[in-house]
Design a protein around this nucleic acid. Structure first.
Lengths: 250, 250
DNA sequence: AATGAGTGTTGCACATGATGCAACGACGAG
DNA sequence: CTCGTCGTTGCATCATGTGCAACACTCATT
């Protein structure tokens, strides 16, 4: 693995948190200023990093363009989006679409709730992997040894009293989810928010994405939310059919 | 400039055109396969590149996550402030920066006039939405139906004889502003104060903020103020470029 | 003016770390 | 079974990235 490139790439997440000047970058990389300068210059030449008027660096437009390309390659999103909108029109709550990649679960699409009380989430943000319904669906479909390896490596933060406490409980939950073909998160991340989710499968039957519907307690109770499960599953199945029907990507 | 990083980063736009295997990457970089392999591995470790089942590489979702995080942490104020100060140093009058949020237009930054006679305003204070130049710019960019909905809900207080009298006049004014790309408020709020404003646009071309220059009649006439318009527009454009991250090196 | 602390920048000698080579392993096709 | 293709690994060589020290610049303080 290339040290120079490794250092250069470490700058990107650092700048994503906000602009930083040369000294800060050098410090956080643990390298000399001149080294950081050369790395930043190279990133700059490629447009991934931009230098604002006060000389601080931030992420550049090129990165956004690339990100755009990257997400277009995730073509599940194209197929799913209209279905998600339709579902949102029917039930009103927030609808999410997520994928698993490289030990992370990311939201890649979202349709906002029509209700004034909304849950906080962000497209592109890694999901709370140990509790989210979509995470359980995506991880649950992995081969047994991978599931175990991932479960062992994870932390299990107790967001609430109902969060998944440890690897054993998580694996058990994954098995249950895999078996039943849907998942929930009842107050496991935020005490007052419930979630139900269903898997989206590709042509080979593998889970390629997962969708979920989230709503706060104050809008609907968990029981009421669960009555929507058949509708959510039908939507997920419709997306699966369309996605696997269209055949090969690109 | 760092050769290794340079090569690694050149892989990204290459993959943006579509997935490629190791050999193709090595060829197009003009390096040995083993070199390309190490670069790809490093990119992979950072999640910028993803390896699909057929072993070919494509752009990774992490790129998307990074870009998303960056826009969330991007503050227009940070970017704009130095430009506003520069403009103020050139022309001396009060400079404002405003955004639209939740049916209100708010001043979020201000550089005070150097002249003793100053206009009253306060950062964080809602703007007189029916007459202020910045309000016209921000509302003018909204979709047609939203503009109409807002215009209908507003009150049209007659601060002066030149205030916008009703919804119809307001919508007409918004259309004109949208068309010409700048706005004025000539004595519409306070009889003796004039204002010129220009929009600041984000990467997607949408108006994300607006800036204005204000001066009382006793200091400059409306005609004199209008001669400053090109300078104001240039400043706004410079901020737009920087905010969307597509600006100049050094 | 003079001073000093805080930046970003440049040139350079050194050795670290990236490079290409060649050999290996895995896979599929003929 | 053999050839061809592709990804992977270990290694010797030296090109490259590295830290240092000195410089240039701005800003605030005296």
């Amino acid at each position: 693995m290339s040290q120079t490139v490794d250092r250069a790439l470490s700058i990107l997440p650092l700048l994503a948190q906000g602009p930083a000047d040369l000294g800060q970058v050098a410090d956080r990389l643990g390298v000399h200023k001149s080294t950081a300068l050369r790395l930043l210059r190279t990133l700059h030449d490629h447009g991934l990093v931009y230098r604002q008027q006060d000389q601080r660096y931030r992420l550049g437009a090129r990165l956004f363009a690339l990100a755009q390309e990257a997400v277009e390659n995730l073509d599940v999103r194209d197929v799913a989006h209209p279905h998600l909108v339709t579902l949102n029109e029917q039930i009103g709550h927030t609808v999410h679409l997520a994928v698993y990649e490289e030990s992370e679960v990311l939201y890649i699409d979202k349709v906002e709730s029509r209700y004034p009380v909304r849950m906080y989430s962000r497209i592109g943000k890694p999901v709370a992997i140990t509790v989210a319904a979509v995470a359980k669906l995506l991880l649950g479909d992995l081969p047994e040894h991978e599931r175990r390896a991932i479960a062992d490596k994870l932390d299990y933060p107790m967001y609430t009293s109902r969060s998944t406490p440890n690897a054993a409980a998580f694996l058990k939950e994954l098995a249950a989810v895999r078996e039943q073909g849907w998942a929930t998160d009842l107050g496991g991340h935020e005490e007052s928010i419930n979630c139900i989710g269903a898997p989206i499968r590709g042509a080979a039957g593998r889970v390629v994405a997962a969708m979920s519907v989230s709503a706060p307690n104050v809008v609907v109770t968990a029981e009421e939310l669960l009555t929507l499960l058949p509708l959510v599953r039908r939507t997920a199945d419709a997306i699966s059919r369309e996605y696997s029907g269209s055949g090969t990507p690109h």
